[in-house]
């Protein structure tokens, strides 16, 4: 689905949507990374930003496979990429077991070493790598929504070589 309209400032505002529905199994993580990287490259992100996006999406999907669906490969993960003029948004949806995002503590490294626990590292990485992240947990549907801006908000440096929506 592609809709394009002119923005008020005369720049083209292209909205695009890409979608991947894929069985919830770890050997599909590679395909999911490939999908997200290809689209990110197509819209002009540089290697550094692409690797951040790809890792954040991998972590989110690995959590779905492990925790929400508990390794039931008959379930599907939906990965939707929405692109608008400002940002690249990935929405990962599952219909498995929910969780309370507020209960996920920031990892304490000493505690992790002591307890040999690894689970929360992925969410910490997702928060660090992306510009925005939101968890939408409902009774039968969990969503992770994360975005990267084409123009880096923090450093004013562009993560994109050229902003050129087709």
């Amino acid at each position: 689905m592609i809709t394009t309209k002119e923005g008020g400032d005369g720049l083209p505002q292209a909205k695009k949507k890409y979608q991947l529905r894929i069985p919830s199994q770890t050997d599909n993580l590679e395909l999911i990374r490939e999908f997200v990287s290809r689209v990110a490259r197509k819209v002009g992100f540089k290697d550094d930003a692409i690797s951040k996006i790809e890792l954040a999406v991998d972590e989110a999907c690995a959590n779905v496979i492990e925790h929400a669906y508990q390794k039931n490969a008959k379930k599907n993960i939906d990965v939707v990429i929405q692109i608008d003029y400002q940002k690249f948004t990935i929405i990962i949806t599952d219909h498995g077991r929910g969780f309370d995002p507020k209960k996920i503590k920031q990892p304490d490294m000493k505690e992790y070493l002591a307890q040999m626990r690894v689970g929360g590292l992925g969410i910490y990485l997702m928060r660090t790598l992306m510009d925005e992240i939101d968890f939408n947990v409902q009774p039968k549907r969990n969503q992770v929504i994360m975005s990267k801006y084409f123009l880096d908000k923090k450093s004013k440096h562009s993560d994109q070589s050229e902003v050129r929506p087709n």
């Binding site: 993580l29 990374r33 790809e54 890792l55 991998d58 972590e59 690995a62 992790y112 070493l113 040999m116 690894v118 590292l121 992925g122 990485l125």
Partner: peptide, 16 residues
């Protein structure tokens, strides 16, 4: 070429 937290977790799990 690539590592995610699952990979790092392996080292964490064995180091002690």
């Amino acid at each position: 070429t690539y590592i995610s937290s699952a990979g790092l977790g392996v080292f964490m799990g064995f180091i002690e």
